[in-house]
C-alpha cells in the first residue's frame, strides 16, 4: 500500500523529517505516536503533498506509484486521504458545492461523467449518517461556524464520501469529548475493509481503544525510533515517552562520541 523510504523533509529551511521509514500493507492500521514536535503532523502533510514542505530526499511509493511526484489532488484521486488536525474554514464555499466539486473531480479523473443531482444527494445522506452529521451543516460554508466536534466529524464524513485506500488521520481525537470521540472512531471503523489501510496519528492511547491498530510506531526527532504491537500504546500511556527518548538520545550520544 504505502512504502516510505528514508524520507527527509524540511519547512522554512528547518529539517523536520530526518529519515522516516514506514511500510503499510493493505488492511493494516498503523498508529503513529510520539511527543510534541517529533514530526507527526509534518509526516502527514508531506504525504498529502502540502507545498509548504520540501522533501529533500527519500522516496514514497503508494500503490505502486511514486507519490511525491503527484499533486495533492491526484494523490486524493489515487486513494490517499488526510483527515486534518485543524480542518480549514472556507467562508463562501458551501459544503454541498465543496463535496460536489470533490466527487466530480474524482469521477473526471477516472473518465466518468459528473454525478447526477439525485445520486449525489443520496450519497451525501448515506455518508452523513455514518458520523451522525447534521443535515443543516450541508448548506453552511465549509467548516465555518462548526464546533470542534463537528469539524472532526466532517473530516470523517468527507473520508466516507471519497472512499480512500489509505486514510491518514492526524490527531482526529484532539479536542473531542468522549461522545464525539466514539462517533468519530465508530465512523472510521465502519469504513474499514480488508483492503483499506489507515495511519492514525495520535498523542494518546484513548483513540486506540476504539480504533485498534495492528502496528504502533513512535516518531521522535523526525525518525521512527520504535515499532511494536498494540501493547506499545499501553506502555506509553503508563510510562510516557521518556524511556524511549533517553534510549534514543543515549544511542545518539554514543554515536556522537564514536
Amino acid at each position: 500500500m504505502l512504502s516510505v523510504k528514508d524520507l527527509h523533509a524540511e519547512i522554512d529551511g528547518k529539517e523536520i523529517l530526518r529519515g522516516v521509514n514506514l511500510e503499510v500493507k493493505p488492511g493494516e492500521v498503523h498508529a503513529i505516536m510520539g511527543p510534541n514536535g517529533s514530526g507527526k503532523s509534518t509526516l502527514s502533510m508531506v504525504l498529502a503533498g502540502n507545498p509548504a514542505y520540501t522533501v529533500t530526499s527519500g522516496e514514497v511509493t503508494f500503490r505502486g506509484k511514486s507519490l511525491l511526484e503527484m499533486t495533492p489532488d491526484v494523490r486524493s484521486h489515487e486513494g490517499l486521504f488526510l483527515g486534518f488536525q485543524y480542518p480549514v474554514e472556507i467562508p463562501g464555499v458551501s459544503m454541498v458545492n465543496f463535496m460536489r466539486a470533490a466527487v466530480n473531480a474524482k469521477r473526471k479523473y477516472f473518465g466518468e461523467p459528473p454525478m447526477g443531482a439525485t445520486d449525489f444527494l443520496k450519497l451525501m445522506r448515506e455518508k452523513r449518517a455514518i458520523v451522525e452529521l447534521d443535515n443543516k451543516l450541508a448548506s453552511r460554508s465549509v467548516n465555518e461556524g462548526f464546533s470542534g466536534g463537528e469539524k472532526k466529524r466532517n473530516e470523517i464524513f468527507q473520508m466516507a464520501v471519497l472512499e480512500p485506500k489509505l486514510a491518514i488521520l492526524d490527531e482526529t481525537d484532539s479536542g473531542l469529548d468522549v461522545d464525539a470521540l466514539r462517533i468519530v472512531a465508530e465512523g472510521v471503523n465502519k469504513l474499514r475493509t480488508p483492503e483499506n489501510s489507515a495511519i492514525v496519528i495520535t498523542h494518546y492511547q484513548r483513540l486506540l481503544d476504539y480504533i485498534k491498530p495492528d502496528v504502533i510506531h513512535v516518531l521522535y526527532k523526525g525518525r521512527i525510533v520504535y515499532t511494536g504491537g498494540p501493547e506499545l500504546a499501553l506502555e506509553i500511556e503508563e510510562k510516557g515517552y521518556d524511556w524511549i527518548k533517553s534510549e534514543v538520545d543515549g544511542k545518539d550520544a554514543i554515536k556522537g562520541e564514536a
Binding site: 499533486t71 495533492p72 489532488d73 486524493s76 488526510l82 465543496f98 466539486a101
Partner: peptide, 17 residues
C-alpha cells in the same frame, strides 16, 4: 491545499475561492 487534498484541482479551487 485543503481543497486539493479532497481532489479538487488547483485551478478549480482557485476559481471556487
Amino acid at each position: 491545499f485543503y481543497m486539493m487534498t479532497r481532489g479538487i484541482s488547483e485551478d478549480q479551487a482557485r476559481l471556487m475561492l
